[in-house]
C-alpha cells in the first residue's frame, strides 16, 4: 500500500515537471503569441468541454471499466438542451421568463445525460456485459437518437442570455473554466472523502474482494456510469452555449482526447488508480500543446497523428514505470521462453 502511494506521488511529480516544461517552452519560443491574456482565455474556454468528458472516462476507468459513449451522450444532451432553448420565442409568448427557459434547458441536458449514464450502468450490471462493448453499442444508440431527433440538421436560435455560460467572463476568468474547476473539485471530493469514492477504488482493484467485503458492486457501478453521463451533460451545456448551435456529430475527436487525458493523468485502465489532480495536469499539458500547434498552424491531421502517438507513448512509459527493474527482468525472461 505504502509502495503504491509513493509511486503515485512520483508519477504526479513527473506530470508537474512536464507541465512546467511545456508552459516554459511555449513561453520561451512563442512569447508574443502564447503569453497573452486572450490566448489564456481562449485556452481556458476550450478545454472544459473535453476535460469534463475525460473526467467521466476517468471515473469509469477507476472502477475497471471504460465509457466510450461520453461524446454521444454529450451530443444527445446537447440536442435536448438546444431543443428547449430553440423554442424560447414560443415560450416567451406563453409568459415564461428567459431565466426559466435556460433553467429548463440545463435541466433537460442534465437529465438526458443522467438517463443515458443509467442505461449504460444498467446494461453493464444487470446483464453483465463488459463496459467496453456495452458503451460502444450505446455510443451508436445515443448518437442515433440525436440524429433522429434533429434529422441531421443543426439547431440554432438560442436566447442571448444563455451564451454567457459558454463565452462570458467573471474577473477575466471564462465561465467554462469556473464551471470546470467547480465540478472537478466536487468530483475530487467525492473520490477522496465519500464512501462511493472509496468503494470505486476498491471495486477497481479487485471486484471479487470488494464483493466479499460487503460492497454492492452493481450499485457502485450504476452510480459511476450515471455520474459519467451527468458530466457529459454538463459538457453539453458548455458546448451548445459556446458554439451557439448544436449539430449531432460534434466533437468526434474528443473520445481519443478524453481517453488520452485520462491515461496521461495516471489513471490505470485496469482499474483502481487515478485522480483529479493528475487528470487536471494532463489537461493543461495537452491544451498547452494544442495551443502551440495552433499558433504554429499545424494541420488538424498532424494533430490527430500526434495525439495518437502520445497515447501510445504514454502507455509504453506507464508500462515501464509499473514494472520496475526486477519486474521487467522477470517479464523479459518469460518472453524469452515464449510465455507472457
Amino acid at each position: 500500500m505504502i509502495e503504491k502511494v509513493r509511486r503515485g506521488k512520483s508519477e504526479e511529480l513527473t506530470l508537474v515537471i512536464i507541465t512546467v516544461g511545456a508552459v516554459a517552452a511555449m513561453s520561451l519560443f512563442l512569447p508574443d503569441k502564447f503569453l497573452t491574456l486572450t490566448n489564456f482565455q481562449s485556452m481556458a474556454s476550450q478545454f472544459p468541454e473535453y476535460g469534463l468528458l475525460a473526467l467521466g472516462i476517468m471515473l469509469t476507468m477507476i472502477t475497471g471499466g471504460i465509457d466510450l459513449s461520453v461524446v454521444s451522450i454529450a451530443n444527445l444532451s446537447g440536442v435536448a438542451g438546444a431543443m428547449v432553448l430553440a423554442s424560447h420565442t414560443k415560450a416567451l409568448a406563453l409568459g415564461l421568463s428567459p431565466a426559466t427557459i435556460i433553467f429548463l434547458a440545463i435541466l433537460a441536458a442534465l437529465a438526458v445525460g443522467a438517463i443515458c449514464g443509467f442505461i449504460n450502468g444498467f446494461v453493464i450490471t444487470a446483464v453483465g456485459v463488459p463496459a467496453i462493448i456495452a458503451t460502444l453499442g450505446t455510443n451508436g444508440l445515443f448518437m442515433g437518437v440525436a440524429i433522429i431527433l434533429t434529422e441531421g440538421h443543426g439547431i440554432r436560435g438560442f436566447p442571448e442570455e444563455f451564451l454567457f455560460i459558454g463565452s462570458g467572463t467573471i474577473l477575466h476568468l471564462p465561465m467554462p473554466l469556473i464551471i470546470f474547476v467547480l465540478v472537478a473539485s466536487m468530483v475530487a471530493l467525492m473520490l477522496r472523502k465519500s464512501s462511493q469514492g472509496f468503494k470505486m477504488y476498491m471495486l477497481g482493484s479487485s471486484p471479487l474482494a470488494a464483493r466479499f467485503s460487503g460492497i454492492n458492486n452493481n450499485k457502485v457501478l450504476i452510480k459511476t456510469y450515471l455520474l459519467s453521463g451527468l458530466l457529459a451533460g454538463i459538457a453539453a451545456i458548455i458546448i451548445i452555449s459556446r458554439v451557439n448551435s448544436m449539430r449531432p456529430g460534434y466533437g468526434y475527436a474528443y473520445l481519443l482526447l478524453g481517453v488520452l487525458i485520462a491515461i496521461l493523468g495516471g489513471t490505470n485502465p485496469d482499474g483502481g488508480r487515478g485522480g483529479v489532480l493528475g487528470l487536471s495536469m494532463a489537461i493543461v499539458i495537452l491544451q498547452v500543446l494544442q495551443s502551440g500547434l495552433n499558433i504554429l498552424s499545424f494541420s488538424p491531421f498532424l494533430k490527430k497523428f500526434i495525439w495518437g502517438l502520445i497515447l501510445i507513448l504514454v502507455m509504453v512509459i506507464t508500462y515501464f514505470q509499473t514494472y520496475t527493474w526486477s519486474g521487467r527482468r522477470l517479464i523479459q525472461n518469460s518472453l524469452k521462453t515464449g510465455a507472457s
Binding site: 446494461v123 456485459v129 462493448i133 456495452a134 460502444l136 453499442g137 450505446t138 455510443n139 451508436g140 444508440l141 445515443f142 448518437m143 442515433g144 437518437v145 440524429i147 433522429i148 434529422e151 441531421g152
Partner: peptide, 12 residues
C-alpha cells in the same frame, strides 16, 4: 437517419 440507432441497438 435510423441506421445508426438500429446499429447501436443491435449491438446492445
Amino acid at each position: 437517419y435510423w441506421h445508426q440507432f438500429f446499429t447501436g441497438l443491435i449491438i446492445v
